[in-house]
Design a protein around this nucleic acid. Structure first.
Length: 486
RNA sequence: CGGGGCGUGGCUCAGUCCGGUAGAGCGCUGCGUUCGGGUCGCAGAGGUCCCCGGUUCGAAUCCGGGCGCCCCGACCA
């Protein structure tokens, strides 16, 4: 870095910016283990807020949390053919334990379908035992060739929901219910509005019949698969003999779904809202929503510290997460830069002048056009308005992200050449027709590095459905959205 | 797994070409000063120079081998 104090600007090198901001805002750090990161308190606090919100939504819709083991017998993973084909290259395997070679190796879970459905098989006998609606918060391991903090690490944290149903219709409904929950969560909490839709066969989950995805557009116009919900059909039920006796008395295979979001969402948040000054954390996710910086000037700083603490308690009473930064070895300016880099939405300054005049200085992480960075307002007004200001900030992030997504999307692209040009000129999501073959996906990927992110859900489709495939070969069977992806 | 880069105080790095007392900035500790946008001064602590072997009177530096990490691609959440 030329200037150690500043981050590499996004426009100069987005990837460098991302790495620097994650490290220097203390979200995470590289660990001694290749490809594995340490999530530091600031990053983990954001994840905890995500967890809490999602967990509430899962429970509201009837799901319960449970916990299944980290180690999975190798033979389980191998049972579903597509599943093992998809995961084989990235498995970490335990072959030795207790000082002895194991008779059968254990796989460190890359995902838990196999062990969970083997247990469901034990617990489900009758249609009366269905549906089974469980979720687990866990770590999983996939031995990735190339890793990036939060976006792709060998070990990551996630939730994985696994359900079993009596009918395909009910399972499909569950799949879509969760997709909707993910979408709403991403919009309302992360301010990261995804487009939703179906994955093409080549991009779907290993072992699924259908995969639905939330795809968000990052500031560098690359797509991030931010959450997936899979309709598994009876693929796993058949391999693990997950059967039940129906109302009519017949033995039938259950229908499964699985769905997950991971700590990758933290990376998505970074790349959706961050700027050249650092992170911008949406208020609902911010471990600290308001930082209070006392201006420690004058002979007696006690009243200033007391005032700061009093403000904190009042904010706390209003349901706001606030923190006083009373460190006496840093100047106020140094603290401003630090908290701005960490993305705290609002800052309050309290100095002798303010106490005298009954006012507080209020600064916003993102300054609205035409406003000053810092406002001096009556104390009561600041305290009274902060809840609404936090909500407004949250909304503003969402609106800006959605506007950016749409202005970087192009619809009605009808040739591969145009598609290539659109991507080269910095477009994000490109909508075209598709004849449904994987050959087209391969061709386009080879030429543009872009893949089909989704066959968009109805509300995201263009007013006029494309009639021809983008290659010109054959009729379009579905509109698709292309993008380069993380 | 291909290509590139790098391993030297906590961090970022210089020094390596051309062997000769191990350095800078930041950070850290103490004292003082300052504090409303990255205070300033003085004093101080802190190093098996990634590892193993070789050459040499002498290796951070040269030679051989190994390990690790980061970045770019291919594979993937």
């Amino acid at each position: 870095m030329a200037d150690e104090k500043k981050l590499t600007p996004q426009g100069e090198d987005f990837s460098a910016w991302y790495n620097e901001v994650v490290l220097r805002s203390e979200l995470a750090d590289h660990s001694p283990v290749r490809g594995s990161m340490v999530i530091r308190p600031w990053g983990y606090g954001i994840w905890e807020n995500m967890q809490r919100a999602l967990d509430d939504k899962f429970k509201e819709t009837g799901h319960e949390n449970a916990y299944f083991p980290l180690l999975i017998p190798m033979s389980f993973i191998e049972r579903e053919k597509d599943h093992i084909e998809g995961f084989a290259p990235e498995l970490a395997v335990v072959t030795r334990a207790g000082g002895k070679e194991l008779d059968e190796p254990y796989v460190i879970r890359p995902t838990s379908e196999t062990i969970i459905y083997s247990m469901y098989a034990k617990w489900v006998q009758s249609y009366r035992d269905l549906p089974v609606l469980m979720n687990q918060w866990a770590n999983v391991m996939r031995w990735e060739l190339r890793t990036r903090l939060f976006l792709r690490t060998s070990e990551f944290l996630w939730q994985e929901g696994h359900t079993a149903h009596a009918t395909a219709e009910e399972a499909e409904e569950e799949t879509l219910l969760i997709l909707g929950i993910y979408r709403k969560f991403m919009e309302e909490w992360i301010g990261m509005p995804p487009i939703t839709g179906l994955k093409s066969d080549s991009e779907k989950f290993a072992g699924a019949v259908r995969s639905y995805s939330c795809e968000a557009l990052m500031k560098d116009n690359k797509a991030l698969q931010a959450g997936t919900s899979h309709f598994l059909g009876q693929n796993f039920a058949k391999q693990f003999e997950l059967t039940f006796q129906s109302e009519a008395g017949q033995e039938e295979f259950a229908w499964n779904t699985s769905w997950g979001v991971s700590t990758r969402l933290v990376g998505g948040m970074v790349m959706t809202h961050g700027d050249d000054d650092g992170l911008v954390v949406p208020p609902r996710l911010a471990p600290v929503q308001v930082v209070i910086v006392p201006i420690l000037r004058g002979d007696d700083i006690t009243p200033i510290l007391e005032k700061a603490e009093q403000v904190r308690l009042q904010l706390k009473a209003a349901g706001i997460r606030a923190k006083v930064d009373a460190r006496d070895n840093l100047s106020p300016g140094a603290k401003y830069f630090e908290w701005e880099r960490k993305g705290v939405p609002f800052r309050i300054e309290v100095g002798p002048k303010d106490i005298e005049q009954g006012q507080l200085a209020l600064a916003r992480r993102l300054v609205p056009v035409g406003e000053k960075r810092k406002m001096f307002l009556p104390e009561a007004q600041v305290l009274g308005e902060l809840p609404a200001r936090l909500e407004a900030f949250q909304t503003e992030l969402m609106v800006a992200a959605q506007a950016r997504r749409e202005s970087n999307s192009i619809r009605g692209v009808s040739t591969v050449g145009e598609l290539e040009e659109a991507l080269a000129s910095g477009s994000g999501f490109v909508y075209t027709g598709w004849n449904g073959t994987s050959a087209v996906e391969e061709t386009v990927k080879a030429r543009t590095k872009a893949t089909i992110r989704v066959l968009p859900s109805e509300e995201f489709r263009s007013d006029k459905a494309p009639t021809k495939c983008v290659t010109g070969e054959g009729a379009s069977v579905a509109e698709v959205v292309w993008a380069r992806a993380y």
